[in-house]
């Protein structure tokens, strides 16, 4: 199928993009890597009056360190997320997750900002942002605000951004002593969306978990922190009994729905298996 006709605006700055969006009266759609927008146009799921291309805006590119916080520009492509040494060192979870996002050619175009803005509950990066307790830098007509990842992902394809707001960058808090990250997903084929996936960021001190955040994806309407499992682990040593307790706690954390391709009970089982593997891995990585 072919897309319906639309106009195309190449934004020069964030202010220009915001203004263009306003002038289109709700009929504009931002374009980043386009790897979700373009297929949805081709399938005629959307018919905007115009696409506003964000890719030429300097303020949305670049990766930098400021006071220990890593700032990743929204237009950073998935392939750069995988390869960039600053991301590897200061936001290791993104580095680990990037090779799981789609296939290599898609990673050359898709952007981290596009992925987080889209908030597909099956996507890797929103869960990573949660586990890293990252913050989103969001620009609107009233200026720039920061939104914590915990408050950003609201529902399927729904974030705390108002229509027309622009995600400028992702801000990752400073690395702490003893920080370790593990990531994995269960997918039918490499590059496919996961059946279940999880990102874990923890601080381990002499074998004891002093802090941990666990975020699952592909198990509900949005990426989900596993608070009960985190509580079972915080302050504990990573032995078999503790890992089993964390796995059981997942029942309170996750609420997948029954789907034709996969009953909820199977997804819960896979989540427990995955958490067990990740915590085992955490014990050996720390």
């Amino acid at each position: 199928m072919k897309s319906p006709a639309f106009d195309y605006i190449r934004a020069r700055s964030v202010a220009h993009a915001l203004e263009a969006y306003r002038s289109l009266d709700g009929e504009g759609v931002y374009l980043a890597g386009g790897h979700s927008v373009v297929p949805s146009l081709t399938l005629r799921l959307q018919a905007p009056a115009a696409l506003i291309d964000l890719s030429g805006i300097d303020a949305l590119t670049g990766i930098s360190l400021d006071d220990g916080w890593l700032r990743i520009g929204a237009m950073t492509r998935h392939a750069e997320v995988a390869a960039d040494p600053m991301i590897r060192d200061h936001a290791h979870l993104f580095h680990l997750a990037a090779p799981h996002v789609a296939h290599p050619a898609i990673r050359n175009r898709g952007t981290i900002g596009g992925s987080l803005s889209l908030a597909d509950p099956a996507s890797e990066f929103p869960a990573v942002a949660l586990a890293l307790r990252a913050e989103m830098e969001v620009a609107g007509h009233d200026g720039v605000r920061r939104v914590k990842a915990d408050d950003f992902f609201l529902d399927i394809y729904e974030t705390a951004m108002e229509p027309g707001e622009i995600l400028q960058a992702i801000l990752v808090p400073p690395v702490r002593a003893g920080d370790v990250a593990v990531f994995d997903e269960l997918a039918r084929r490499r590059g496919d969306y996961a059946m279940v996936g999880a990102a874990v960021q923890a601080v381990v001190d002499a074998g004891r978990v002093t802090d941990i955040s666990i975020a699952f994806f592909s198990v509900g309407n949005k990426p989900t922190r596993a608070g009960a499992a985190e509580s079972a682990l915080r302050g504990a040593r990573l032995d078999d009994a503790v890992i089993a307790a964390a796995q059981s706690a997942l029942d309170a954390d996750l609420d997948p729905s029954d789907e034709p391709q996969m009953p909820a009970s199977v997804r819960r089982h896979l989540a427990r298996v995955l958490l067990g593997r990740l915590l085992g891995h955490l014990g050996t990585t720390a």
Binding site: Y8, V38, A79, A105, N108
Partner: peptide
């Protein structure tokens, strides 16, 4: 220089 899906890139991009 990098492989991309030509069906997912607009000519204007």
């Amino acid at each position: 220089g990098k492989p991309v899906h030509a069906c997912l890139v607009l000519a204007v991009q």
